[in-house]
């Protein structure tokens, strides 16, 4: 269980969502054993939580990308006038 949780934390939003959809499909299969379905269900609950976290984890940022004199790229916050 520990491992599974760690794995989920590292997933991108798309990966987590895809996995979640896969789990629901598996659960909808009549043939899955109850014991297996319980662990799948637990994983699904964690994945959906992870997806929701991903939606909120970023902060709003608007930056402009420019190249400095030494040739490296930097992104600077820009304030836009309405």
């Amino acid at each position: 269980m520990e491992k599974m949780t760690n794995g989920i934390e590292k997933l991108s939003f798309e990966q987590a969502l895809e996995k979640l959809e896969g789990i629901v499909k598996e659960l909808e299969d009549e043939n899955i054993a109850l014991s297996e379905s319980i662990s799948k269900f637990e994983e699904g609950v964690k994945l959906s939580g992870h997806c929701l976290n991903k939606l909120n984890e970023a902060e709003k940022r608007i930056e402009e990308l420019t190249r400095t004199k030494d040739g490296s790229l930097i992104a600077k916050e820009i304030e836009l006038k309405d």
Partner: peptide
């Protein structure tokens, strides 16, 4: 973002329902 949240909720709903039926 709301669509995302709705989508995830839908998936969750399906998941709970199917698991409840199983149990």
């Amino acid at each position: 973002k709301n669509d995302f949240i709705i989508k995830i909720s839908e998936i969750n709903g399906r998941m709970y329902k199917v698991q409840k039926n199983k149990i």
